[in-house]
Structures are given as structure tokens and as C-alpha cells.
Simulated scan of single mutants.
Amino acid sequence: MDGRTHARFFMCVENPLTVHDRASISWGMISLSAQDALELPVDELALHVLQDFVESNEWNSYNYSLRYSRDEAYRNNGAAVQAMAEAVQWLLSHGMLATKPGDSNPQSVFVTRRGHEAIKQGIATVRSVNRLQGSLHPLIETKARRQFLLGEYENAIFVSMKAVEVRVRQLAGFGDDMFGTDLMTKAFRQGGPLADLTAPPGEIVGTMMLFQGAYAVLRNPSGHREVSFDDVTEASEAVMTASLLMRMLDKIERRLGT
């Protein structure tokens, strides 16, 4: 993809323009070559297609794909036409396009609320939200997913790490007066109630330091001052770190149970 096409794509996805600004720009997938369509990751291609649906007031998913099978730039490249169909299907499967209610044509679609939000938010946010769907530990998902979807990233991280802290305290049998990095140290140190006595000493120390560090970096700052996570990818990975710690606690609970 050349630099101008790449820049035009990200203008439409990352920074939606005003109607006045848009009038001077050539919108539509026709601005991308067939090779460009093949090289774009399917989610990026899908967001461009989604913007195209909005701009062209397209309502039929079959006709949309058919346009490219008949277009001179695409019709001799079946793989590129298939890439367009894949992008449309990706949008449908991710709830950004949906079948029009009450329409007898099963190919009749509309851009959903989530689709319009995706255009505003851009590819980084879309990827971060998708990363969290269906992969978070249940105890983290119930605490953090809603806040994350609302864009409250700091709160999502705070409640995720707080859930980890509460579970460590419960599994270790400590009272509420034990908290923070001191809790992690006493719970996971050599001889601590959550330490694996069969593990090598280095692994015991490493596990303790992992919980200590995650708490100190992700939980402590939010508890004492305003913290801003401007990078949505970093925020999603912080929540996933809490999810990983919770899965480690699942194993520890099973070990303690035996």
C-alpha cells in the first residue's frame, strides 16, 4: 500500500472527518488497489468497508461484494474479491453490521451502534475490545469488562487488580488488615501459604515478584492518584495481566485443595 492510500485509510478510521472535509476526499474501496485489499489485515479492511457502507448509504451486503467482482480493478483478482467478502462477514460476525429487521431480503443490512462507535474509536480500540471478549477470567470479566467498554480504562484496571488482591487474601487466609505488596510478599514468599513447596526456589521468588510487581505498577498508582491510560492497547493488556494472575490463582486453589 502506498503512503497516500495508507494515510487516507487511517484518516477515515482513526480520525473521522466532518462532512465538509469528506467532500474533497475520494471515499470507497475503489481507492484501494486489489493488492492493497489483500495486504490489509481483515479487521482494518473491515473498518474501511464499514466506512464505505456509511458513505455510500449501502444497504445490501451481497450487492456490495458484487460491486468488486465487476469492477475493472478487482474482477481479474478473485482473491481480492474474496477479501472484500471476508471483510463484510467479519463486520457481521462482530456485530458492526446486522440484518435489517422486517426486511424479507436476508442480505439487507444496516450499520449498528457498535459499528458507528468502531468508526469513531479506530482500529486500536476495536482490537483491544475484541481481545477482551471471551478471553478474560470470569472474575475479571464481571468486574472490568463493562468499564472498559465505556472507556473507563483506569477503573477497569483498578477493579481487576482489586479482585486479584481480594482473592489472594482469601486463599492465603489473611484478614483485611493485610493488603498491598505486603500481602503479596507474605502470601507467596518461601513458606508462605500460597507458595508451592515443590517448586524450585527461583520459581517461588519469581511468582512472588510477579504478583508484587503487578500490584505495585497496576493497582497502587490508581489507589493514590489520578492515572490516565491514553493507550487503549496498554490498558487492555493491563486487564489481561490481571486475568492471567487470576488463572494462576485458580491453579493455586486446586493445589491447596489437594
Rank of each mutant, 00 (worst) to 15 (best):
Asp2Ser: 02
Thr5Ser: 15
His6Asn: 08
Phe9Cys: 09
Phe9Pro: 00
Met11Ile: 06
Asn15Leu: 02
Leu17His: 03
Val19Tyr: 03
His20Gly: 11
Ala23Lys: 14
Ala23His: 12
Ala23Pro: 03
Ile25Asp: 03
Ser26Glu: 14
Met29Val: 10
Met29Ala: 10
Ser33Met: 09
Ala37Met: 11
Leu38Gln: 09
Leu38His: 05
Glu39Met: 10
Glu39Arg: 11
Leu40Tyr: 13
Glu44Lys: 13
Leu45Ile: 02
Ala46Tyr: 06
Val49Ala: 14
Gln51Asp: 14
Asp52Ala: 14
Asp52Val: 11
Val54Ile: 15
Glu55Phe: 13
Trp59Arg: 14
Ser61Val: 11
Tyr62Phe: 15
Asn63Asp: 14
Asn63Trp: 15
Ser65Phe: 07
Ser65Asn: 14
Ser65His: 10
Asp71Pro: 09
Tyr74Pro: 13
Asn76Phe: 11
Asn77Arg: 12
Asn77Met: 12
Gly78Arg: 14
Ala79Phe: 06
Val81Leu: 14
Gln82Ile: 08
Ala87Pro: 12
Val88Asn: 09
Val88Leu: 10
Val88Asp: 08
Trp90Val: 05
Trp90Phe: 14
Leu91His: 11
Leu91Glu: 08
Leu91Ile: 09
Gly95Ala: 09
Met96Leu: 04
Leu97Cys: 05
Thr99Gln: 12
Lys100Thr: 13
Lys100Tyr: 10
Lys100Ser: 11
Gly102Ile: 06
Asp103Cys: 15
Asp103Met: 09
Ser104Met: 05
Asn105Lys: 00
Pro106Arg: 04
Gln107Pro: 01
Val109Arg: 12
Val111His: 02
Arg113Pro: 02
Arg114Cys: 04
Arg114Trp: 03
Gly115Ala: 10
His116Met: 06
Glu117Gly: 01
Ala118His: 00
Ile123Val: 10
Thr125Arg: 12
Val126Ile: 09
Ser128Gly: 05
Val129Met: 08
Leu132Val: 06
Gly134Ile: 10
Gly134Asp: 04
Ser135Gln: 07
His137Ala: 04
Thr142Cys: 05
Thr142Gly: 12
Gln147Gly: 00
Leu150Ala: 05
Glu152Met: 02
Glu154Lys: 03
Asn155Pro: 00
Asn155Phe: 01
Ile157Met: 01
Val159Ile: 10
Val159Ser: 06
Val159Asn: 02
Met161Thr: 04
Val164Glu: 03
Arg167Pro: 03
Arg167Met: 02
Gly180His: 11
Leu183Ala: 05
Met184Pro: 04
Met184Gln: 05
Ala187Phe: 13
Phe188Leu: 05
Gln190Tyr: 13
Gln190Ile: 15
Gly191Thr: 07
Leu194Arg: 06
Ala195Thr: 01
Ala195Ile: 01
Thr198Gly: 06
Gly202Lys: 06
Gly202Ser: 08
Val205Cys: 04
Gly206Pro: 01
Gly206Thr: 01
Met209Thr: 03
Leu210Trp: 03
Gln212Ile: 07
Gly213Pro: 00
Tyr215Trp: 13
Val217Asn: 07
Leu218Met: 14
Leu218Ile: 08
Pro221Gly: 00
Pro221Arg: 01
Ser222Lys: 07
Ser222Trp: 00
Arg225Trp: 02
Glu226Trp: 06
Phe229Leu: 15
Asp230Arg: 13
Asp231Leu: 07
Ser236His: 05
Ser236Pro: 06
Glu237Val: 11
Ser243Tyr: 05
Leu244Gly: 11
Leu244Tyr: 15
Met246Gln: 07
Met246Gly: 01
Arg247Pro: 01
Leu249Arg: 02
Leu249Gly: 00
Leu249Ile: 02
Lys251Gln: 09
Lys251Thr: 07
Arg255His: 02
Thr258Leu: 11
Thr258Tyr: 10
